[in-house]
């Protein structure tokens, strides 16, 4: 089967790790501390993807332009701005990044104790607090020479533990796990998506869409008890329901990538 005719321009939403730099007020003092930090760790920010989180500052667009200029002069290349007003968006500022699910995290800690619906920016998840604390520590102990070891806690190692889902995935739900394998003990409903960095194992019927190897991992596979899928994706190749061979439907199968096209074979 010739897959080439189904190829399009490739673009997808992805999550990548970036270093989040979080300036604090008063800004002049923070920049002084930053300069002292850079003096001891000259290459720390070099060629690193950096997101500047301005949630802890009271800034306007002019202030943001000024801050970006100050950071650029210090060789810090800014990938995007977090916690900024989307209305500031202009050609002279880096892209304004929407906050990813900060408010939806279940293990969130309410920092200021306010019971009202405050903005996500004032609430920190445990992970964010940890990262914030690490950067604050890194900036505070500028007396000590620090090399690569100092940057290690910030760049967390990838979590390769598999994700086990013990319930059916309902229509409209998305399981997104770019870190590794996903195992679902139950069915994937029509209108549900499972996106995994590794392989996907489904002990039930796959009626929705499954994307294995979502970060381009060509070795990833999809296994399911019964194939009724709307779409199968492995790596950067995908098949829609119409393109899936009819004799594979309703069967227990595995799907994998071979010569840039998806192959489906029955398991029994």
């Amino acid at each position: 089967m010739n897959q080439a005719i189904y190829r399009h321009i490739r673009f997808r939403g992805h999550s990548f790790n970036a270093l989040s730099l979080e300036p604090e007020a008063p800004l002049a003092a923070w920049i002084d501390r930053l300069d002292a930090f850079i003096a001891h760790n000259a290459a720390f920010f070099a060629r690193k993807p950096i997101v500047v989180d301005v949630s802890y500052l009271e800034l306007d667009r002019t202030g943001a332009l000024e801050l970006v200029k100050n950071l650029s002069e210090r060789g810090i290349r800014i990938l995007g701005l977090a916690g900024a007003d989307p209305a500031w968006s202009c050609d002279d500022l880096p892209a304004i990044l929407p906050r990813a699910r900060a408010a939806a995290e279940s293990n969130q800690t309410n920092v200021d104790g306010a019971g009202e619906t405050d903005t996500p920016a004032t609430r920190l998840t445990a992970n964010e607090q940890l990262a914030f604390q690490e950067i604050a520590n890194a900036l505070a102990d500028d007396g000590q020479p620090s090399g690569a070891s100092n940057s290690e806690p910030v760049c967390r190692p990838p979590n390769i533990a598999p994700l086990i889902v013990n319930a059916p995935v309902r229509s409209g739900q998305t399981i997104y796990y770019p870190e590794g394998d996903v195992t679902v003990v139950g069915s994937i409903a029509s209108g549900a998506d499972v996106v995994a960095g590794g392989s996907i194992h489904i002990y039930g019927t796959l009626r929705g869409r499954a994307f294995a190897g979502a970060r381009g991992e060509a070795q990833a596979r999809i296994f399911c008890r019964r194939l009724e899928a709307e779409l199968l994706g492995v790596g950067e190749v995908y098949l829609t329901a119409d393109q899936i061979e009819t004799n594979a439907r309703g069967r227990s199968v595995q799907a994998w990538l071979e010569h840039e096209s998806i192959r489906i074979a029955p398991l029994d």
């Binding site: 319930a167 309902r170 229509s171 409209g172 409903a189 209108g191």
Partner: peptide, 16 residues
């Protein structure tokens, strides 16, 4: 029928 069942599936997800 299939459209009703899929919508119900969506609602079950919201209930959970």
């Amino acid at each position: 029928e299939i459209s009703s069942v899929r919508d119900s599936d969506r609602i079950i997800g919201l209930l959970d």
